[in-house]
């Protein structure tokens, strides 16, 4: 059989739709998240007593010197003195690399972006543009094996974002006293951590480390139960990956637009 040229296939279906959709979806997210990270402002909303923090900026390790209002969330105070003057300071720079690394090395995302960005292959049984192929055996793609370390960090982030969602349930009155309440932003932040947790706790590496490494998991009941739970989420890993990606971006949009005064945060009770 003669070898197939790039894009050549006998498939009559619209095989190109999936990689194009993935390409557009990932590109849109990368462009928006990079833009949002460089803003360094409007990442928190405290109007009407609310306390919303964008997930792109959480945990806020240091606050930008020009925004002392953002000090409330900062763990270690004002931005470090050694930060270079030529580079704009944004708290997002200090945290976004971790979830970005987790998604970049995720098994689902790898398969998706190899197809959509490298056409390796463009889709199943479709001709490829290159003759050489090294796979994940050599540098740089052998570094994908670091995925489990990013997973450890991603799990920590889930607890931090869970705390942010909890704080979004408390609204300060005129005297400064906090009262339990639910605003639209509370729902947005809570849904965000639920979707991110569903994605993170369905990770293939976690599935392996929690019990998959055993040949007889039934001998360690905690491992067997953990393996079953992670497997349950893992079966829909792609779905959780996309839902959480969209919603974490939307959460930043919501907090940003509320902080800019463009959207009004509706208080449900």
């Amino acid at each position: 059989m003669p070898p197939r040229r790039f894009g050549e296939t006998a498939r009559p279906d619209a095989w190109w739709v999936q990689p194009v959709a993935v390409f557009l979806g990932f590109t849109a997210f990368i462009v928006y998240s990079t833009w949002a990270a460089f803003q360094g402002s409007h990442f928190w909303f405290n109007g009407q007593g609310a306390d919303y923090l964008s997930p792109f900026y959480s945990p806020e390790l240091f606050y930008p010197a020009q925004y002392p209002q953002a000090a409330a969330h900062a763990w270690f105070g004002v931005q470090p003195y050694w930060w270079p003057n030529w580079l704009v300071f944004s708290p997002a720079f200090l945290v976004l690399w971790a979830p970005a690394g987790f998604r970049l090395t995720c098994y689902y995302y790898r398969g998706a972006y190899y197809k959509a960005f490298w056409a390796d292959p463009p889709n199943c049984a479709v001709g490829e543009p290159r003759k050489t192929f090294l796979g994940e055996r050599y540098f740089p793609l052998v570094l994908q094996n670091v995925h489990r370390y990013f997973m450890y960090l991603a799990v920590i982030f889930i607890f931090i974002l869970g705390y942010d969602a909890w704080k979004a349930m408390w609204f300060a009155d005129a005297t400064g006293a906090a009262h339990f309440g639910i605003g639209v932003g509370t729902i947005v932040l809570t849904l965000n951590v639920i979707l991110l947790a569903s994605y993170t706790f369905g990770c293939h590496s976690l599935r392996h480390l929690i019990g998959g490494f055993l040949d007889e998991p039934s001998k360690v009941s905690a491992c067997a139960k953990g393996f079953a739970c992670v497997s349950c989420l893992n079966r829909r890993h792609m779905m959780w990956a996309w839902f959480s990606l969209f919603w974490v971006g939307f959460t930043d949009v919501y907090v940003r637009l509320c902080a800019m005064g463009i959207w009004h945060d509706f208080r449900i009770f």
Binding site: Y107, Y108, R110, G111, Y114, K115, D120, P121, C124, A125, F133, L134, G135, E136, R137, L141, N145, R148, H204, S205, R207, H208, L209, G212, F213, N234, R235, H237
Partner: peptide, 28 residues
């Protein structure tokens, strides 16, 4: 060499979850 395209899983007539249940656990 496997770069997780999941094409093998898609074509399996026995619906074996090749990538998620066999290849990725071995990679891990």
């Amino acid at each position: 060499f496997c770069n997780i395209t999941k094409c093998c899983t898609k074509v399996c007539p026995e619906n074996i979850t090749i990538t998620d249940n066999a290849i990725i656990p071995l990679k891990e």
